[in-house]
C-alpha cells in the first residue's frame, strides 16, 4: 500500500483544515506542508487544539472542512487503520499500550496492516502465515534490540519504568515503518534527565529511520533543541510559524504563553 515518495511530493499536506465540535472551533483554517525528513514542532498552550490536529491526521476525526493528504493521497473518509497503512504512525499523550500483552506482542499486533494472511491462514497455518509470522517476530525482536528493550520483550508494559513505556510506544509506532511519525508530548511526565535522553533518541530516530516527524511538546527546550521548524497554535488558530529563533521572539507567542500585559 505504501506509495513511493518522490522527493517533490510532501509527506503531509493539510489544506485549510477546520474542526468544529458543536459550537466550539477546535482547529481553524490549519494548513501545513511537511517535506520529506522534516522535523517540525507543534506547540501551543493547553487546549489549543494540538492533539485534535493529530486526531484529524490519524483519521480518528473527520475534518469539518479542508483536506489532508498523505503522500498525495487524500485521507477523507478513511478509517484510522487505513490512514495508518498510508504511512502514518503516532503515539499518545497518555500512554496507550496494550497492558495485558507482552512488549513483543505490542509490537507484533501493530503489524496488522501488513499481514499477508487472514482468518483462514491463521486457522490452517498456511505457508504465507508461517512466513509472515516469522518475519514479524524477527523484525520485532530486531527493533527491540536496537532500542535496548529486548530484555523486556516478554514483560508486560505495566512492569516497565515510565520512561521505558514512553520509549516502547515510540518503538511500536516506528515498527509500522511510517513515513510520518506523530509524537504527542513524548516528554510528558519525564524528569529532565530522561527528557534529555528522549531528545537524543528522537534526534537519532530522525537521522536513522528517514522519517518525517511532527512533534507536540510542552517542554519548550525540547522543541527548541529538536525542531528546525515550529508552528504555534492557540485557540485553534495558527499564530506563528518559523525557526526556533523566530518563535522565541515572536510577540504573539509570548502573549499566548505569558498572557497579555497591556491591561
Amino acid at each position: 500500500m505504501q506509495t513511493q515518495t518522490t522527493s517533490s511530493m510532501p509527506v503531509l499536506e493539510i489544506r485549510k483544515m477546520t474542526q468544529r465540535f458543536g459550537g466550539l472551533v477546535a482547529v481553524s483554517n490549519f494548513s501545513v506542508t511537511l517535506g520529506r525528513n522534516q522535523l517540525t514542532g507543534l506547540i501551543g498552550p493547553n487546549g489549543a487544539g494540538k492533539t485534535t490536529v493529530f486526531n484529524l491526521i490519524s483519521g480518528f476525526y473527520q475534518p469539518s472542512e479542508g483536506e489532508i493528504f498523505i503522500n498525495g493521497t487524500p485521507t477523507a473518509g478513511l478509517k484510522p487503520h487505513k490512514v495508518t497503512s498510508l504511512g502514518v504512525a503516532r503515539t499518545f499523550q497518555n500512554i496507550r499500550l496494550w497492558n495485558q500483552m507482552s512488549v513483543l506482542d505490542n509490537i507484533r499486533v501493530a503489524q496488522h496492516g501488513s499481514l499477508d494472511y487472514g482468518f483462514f491462514g491463521a486457522m490452517f497455518r498456511t505457508r504465507s502465515y508461517v512466513d509472515c509470522e516469522a518475519k514479524i517476530e524477527k523484525e520485532a525482536r530486531e527493533l527491540l534490540e536496537i532500542f535496548e528493550l529486548d530484555k523486556q520483550a516478554d514483560e508486560l508494559p505495566t512492569n516497565l519504568a515510565y520512561g521505558l513505556q514512553r520509549k516502547l510506544e515510540i518503538v511500536r509506532a516506528l515498527s509500522e515503518k511510517p513515513q510520518l511519525l506523530l509524537l504527542d508530548e513524548p516528554a510528558a511526565g519525564l524528569n529532565s534527565v530522561d527528557a534529555q535522553e528522549l531528545i537524543r533518541l528522537i534526534h537519532w530516530i530522525h537521522e536513522t529511520f528517514d522519517v518525517t516527524i511532527l512533534l507536540i511538546e510542552h517542554h519548550m527546550d525540547v522543541v527548541m533543541e529538536l525542531c528546525s521548524e515550529i508552528k504555534v497554535i492557540d485557540f485553534g488558530q495558527t499564530i506563528a510559524e518559523g525557526t526556533p529563533e523566530q518563535i522565541r521572539n515572536h510577540p504573539a507567542v509570548i502573549t499566548a504563553y505569558l498572557g497579555d500585559d497591556t491591561i
Binding site: S58, G59, F60, K79, P80, H81, T84, S85, A89, R90, F92, R96, L97, W98, N99, Q100, M101, D105, R108, V109, A110, Q111, H112, G113, S114, L115, Y117, G118, F119, G121, A122, M123, R125, Y129, C132, E133, I136, R172, A173, E176
Partner: peptide, 28 residues
Amino acid sequence: RYTSSTFGKGVAAICQDEVAAEIMSVNT
C-alpha cells in the same frame, strides 16, 4: 490457533484499548 496468531491478537488489542488498536492499524 486464532488467539495465538498475530491476526487474532487483534482481539486482545481491542479488549485492552480499542482506540489504540484502530490507530495502530488493526481493522477493528
